[in-house]
Design a protein around this nucleic acid. Structure first.
Lengths: 358, 358
DNA sequence: CGTCGTCGTAAAATCGATTTCAATGGAAGT
DNA sequence: ACTTCCATTGAAATCGATTTTACGACGACG
């Protein structure tokens, strides 16, 4: 029943240990360790000899032993909904870049927008030795917060900014950002507005954006009925279908669509064009995220720019600061900007403003 | 000079160790370990007691200790050029998904298309305890191969398929795939074809694709001059600019453009449209990768579908097999498909076929 | 000239879970 | 009734680098 006959990295008899290096360099293991970790504490000649020995043997430190003894894993965990969405991937990329510079490796985990899965993955990450965690959003299972508190693991919620929160945040005010988009349309004169939102279940970002839109419209005396909101997973096709649905539902037909992100917005753009509608003449469309192609769509998309890299880098900066025991700001605000392009304009028929009785 | 006063995860006096659980459950640490790792070897009643104790104390295993003693880190490294490109991100996502199911965590590292950086990151990954590596492409520094050989670390090159290679591959034949696109255009009647390629330096995939195109054209008696090839980093703007350049350079003007990927192709599409050219009437454009928006561009883009998730999952499958000591196929071929859409058609003026003398 | 401090190094303790080995008790078989 | 075997558990050894403690040599200073 030969099962695991393969030689493993560490099983390998040729695996070089610190004692082997010590023997070759003619000194004690402790000295090797010092030479690596505190080079200035070892005399230059000896250091040179040690370096040669390490090179010659191809020594690779055993991380497990190091982590066990020093109680530092030099790894942090990044826990995101999915890697399939460009902004999350870029956030991870940026954070990883900063960590890498600091000699820290990135453990990644995804939970596909399922908060229970998030909790499980977080536990695993911690077990694996993650010294800190980067999370997305601020809605997590209470048990996750408990766990983090219990072990005093530094962590930061990204994609949100909430100075009032007891937990650190790096991001922006989703409600206000979405409100900005809504306000833009209202200022242009739109009254009949519909929304294609991302799925709001278990997702504080989409939830707040929708709330922000609703509140802003209400502030201008416009009510957003449930029937004028469609929640869809992010995809161009979903954007198209939702757009078609909302257009058919609206009476009179909406003059503007606010989309939860650019993917949905692109779908809406395509659907409207396919229906022979003019954008922005017949209908205005605004997106969210400012993905690369938003600038190149037809027409170019008015959208809210979300600096994902900046959030990733700032989040990493926060974590690094915490790990080094530095004072760091608990809440970091990144700037989101409404990018005005040609997919939004005043409604062509102001007559549409006066909606009958409904 | 208070420097590092913060309590760390493991420093925490409240940190629960296996002995604490053992005490509470009234048994030896060894039994706890068994209850976790070989539940069937512990009597049900005791197991229940132990589980309660663990829950009550909030026990989290110390991975470093476990890894040190068992010589298994339960982590694998994924080393990709960048997370900014959707296909790589999706590949990682898919691989991570499979690993996660198998109780394995994913360490991620990027090298931004710099092979020296790749070597360094690989070393780091190994040092951190990665039991195996997923790589992209088969062009790596010889030292990287040496390292992998020396320690017999399982690894797999993705995005390439080469049954003749001594090293495992999961992917497809880049040369043949790109040739397919070229052939498609030739069959449509195009003779005057130009190429917007990704950067080929240090990149076997782009290099082979370009070679494949060149060879295929030559096979049909068409030579591809250097001046009709532009190498650019992937971005829509670069696609636009390169397209403008090649169009101005070609004499007569090219009737088709092959792009290294869909991002460049989208740029080309936009540039051509901006110039008032009809697609595919005046010019055909084909892309590579089949990103989501390729199906929704105007016109929809003819492109080569690359199943990134499948490669990620297959690569993970290979690694898992290796780690478990199973027999696994050394080379896995994934299917790439030329997706015919509306950005390619026969050239409008067959007259353009006969090119003067040049 | 002796003592103290410093520097560089070595020896040994340590981190915490796993694994090996041994011991116990009870069931099954002779 | 006695041996054998199996299942369950505990005690102790172990993984390999880091960290603590100790020590010898050397220079400075009183």
């Amino acid at each position: 029943m030969a099962s695991d006959t393969r030689k493993r990295f560490q099983d390998d008899p040729s695996r070089v240990r610190i004692t082997d290096v010590a023997k070759l360099a003619g000194c004690a293991p402790a000295t090797i360790s010092r030479a690596i970790n505190y080079p200035e504490k070892v005399s230059p000649e000896r250091r040179a000899r040690i370096e040669n020995a390490m090179l010659e043997l191809g020594y690779v430190r055993n991380h497990a032993a190091r982590a066990l003894r020093s109680q530092r894993s030099h790894m942090v965990g990044v826990l995101i909904p999915t890697l399939d969405y460009a902004l999350y991937a870029r956030l991870v990329g940026a954070a990883n870049g900063k960590f890498s510079e600091a000699g820290i490796s990135t453990l990644i985990a995804t939970f596909d927008y399922d908060l229970d899965a998030e909790l499980k993955e977080a536990r695993l990450l911690l077990e694996r030795g993650a010294e800190a965690l980067i999370l997305v959003g601020d809605r997590h299972r209470p048990k996750l917060y408990d766990l983090l508190d219990q072990y005093e693991v530094p962590f930061v919620n990204t994609y949100v900014y909430n100075a009032a929160s007891a937990y650190p945040t790096v991001g922006f005010d989703n409600s206000a950002a979405a409100a900005k988009a809504a306000q833009h349309l209202v200022h242009l004169g739109h009254k009949n507005i519909c929304v294609i939102s991302g799925i709001t279940k278990d997702n504080d970002r989409t939830t707040r954006r929708l709330e922000g839109i609703r509140a802003e419209l209400l502030r201008h005396g416009i009510e957003l009925p449930e029937s004028m909101v469609a929640e869809r997973p992010y995809s161009i096709s979903n954007g198209r279908r939702a757009c078609a649905l909302l257009l058919s539902r609206g009476n009179p037909r909406p003059t503007a669509i606010i989309c939860g992100n650019d993917v949905l917005a692109l779908g809406a753009l395509i659907e409207c064009a396919a229906k022979g509608m003019e954008i922005p003449g017949d209908i205005s469309v605004v997106g969210f995220d400012n993905l690369e192609y938003a600038a190149h769509s037809n027409p170019p998309l008015t959208t809210v720019d979300v600096p994902a890299e900046e959030m990733g880098a700032d989040a990493a900066g926060y974590i690094l600061g915490k790990l080094n025991g530095n004072e760091v700001a608990t809440h970091v605000l990144v700037e989101v900007q409404l990018i005005l392009r040609n997919s939004s304009a005043p409604p062509k028929w102001p007559g549409a403003l006066a909606d009958p009785n409904r």
